[in-house]
């Protein structure tokens, strides 16, 4: 299958892209890395009249430090995220999760901002972004606004980005020295997560002093495992303590049932994978 016909523009600045969005109206669609959008277009699940390719806007790419934050341009590829030294040092969790996205070819093209804006509940980057308390910088006609991760993901494939807006950067607080692990369960290589758990843990002298845990595909949006986080803080990082705390991982979730797994099984996976992720991150 090939996509339905569309017009194509490739702006070179964010301003031009926003203008194209306004001119294109309801029917315009932003193209980031295209690794979700092009399959959707090919399957004719969408037929926008205008595609605005963000690939020619250099200001949307790259990773930099800004005080206590690490700023990642929305068009930074998964490949570049996995290789970046600043992220390795300060935001290891997003790097660990990104390494598991799809396959090398897709990671060469796909982007952090594109994946987050697409907001597939089985996508691997929303849960770590939520756990890391990332902030989303969104540009529109009236300048930029910043949305917290907790408010960014609204529903299945739905985010706080408005129709004439675009995501320009993702700002992560620094988690320097925290351990990180993304524990993903799927049936075959490169498949979507059935359930996955993103955990980043701070350990001081064998005791867990802070914990952030996000769950992938346990609801239409990513979910924080807050009950597990509070149960872990102050505990020594032993297998017994971690497994006990992980029993609360499915609290407050509402997973779907599908051909891969029922809700009970997803809840079971959340508990098991949370235990594994926390142990690895604390280890």
């Amino acid at each position: 299958m090939i996509p339905a016909q569309f017009d194509y523009v490739r702006p070179t600045t964010v301003e031009e892209a926003l203008q194209a969005l306004r001119d294109g109206g309801d029917d315009a669609k932003l193209l980031a890395g295209g690794q979700s959008l092009l399959p959707v277009l090919r399957l004719r699940m969408a037929d926008p009249s205008l595609i605005i390719d963000l690939g020619g806007i250099p200001e949307l790419r790259g990773v930099r430090e800004d005080g206590n934050e690490v700023v990642v341009g929305a068009m930074t590829s998964h490949h570049d995220v996995t290789r970046d030294d600043i992220l390795r040092q300060h935001v290891a969790l997003i790097q660990e999760a990104t390494k598991t996205v799809a396959d090398p070819q897709v990671r060469h093209r796909g982007t952090l901002g594109g994946a987050l804006a697409h907001a597939d509940p089985a996508g691997d980057l929303a849960a770590p972004a939520l756990a890391l308390e990332a902030k989303f910088v969104i540009a529109g006609a009236d300048g930029t606004r910043t949305v917290a991760a907790a408010d960014f993901f609204e529903d299945y494939f739905s985010t706080a980005i408005g129709e004439a807006e675009l995501l320009t950067e993702i700002r992560f607080p620094k988690y320097t020295g925290w351990g990180a692990r993304y524990e993903k369960f799927n049936r075959v290589a490169q498949a979507w997560s059935i359930v996955a758990v993103a955990a980043t843990i701070k350990v001081d002298g064998g005791t867990i002093s802070d914990a952030r845990i996000g769950l992938t595909n346990m609801a239409g949006v990513p979910v924080r495992a807050t009950a597990v986080e509070s149960a872990l803080v102050g505990q020594s990082a032993t297998e017994d303590n971690v497994r006990k705390a992980a029993q609360a991982a499915a609290e407050g979730t509402s997973p779907t049932a599908d051909a891969d797994a029922g809700t009970d099984y997803r809840e079971h996976l959340a508990r098991v994978l949370t235990g594994r992720a926390v142990l690895a991150a604390a280890g």
Binding site: G34, R42, P104, H108, R109
Partner: peptide, 25 residues
């Protein structure tokens, strides 16, 4: 469907699935 990788080529030195890239890109 972007799964199989049979159409893999290199684009500016990086492997890509050429069914998931537009010619204009």
């Amino acid at each position: 469907t972007s799964n199989c990788g049979a159409c893999t080529v290199h684009l500016d030195g990086m492997s890509v699935k050429s069914c998931s890239v537009l010619a204009v890109q």
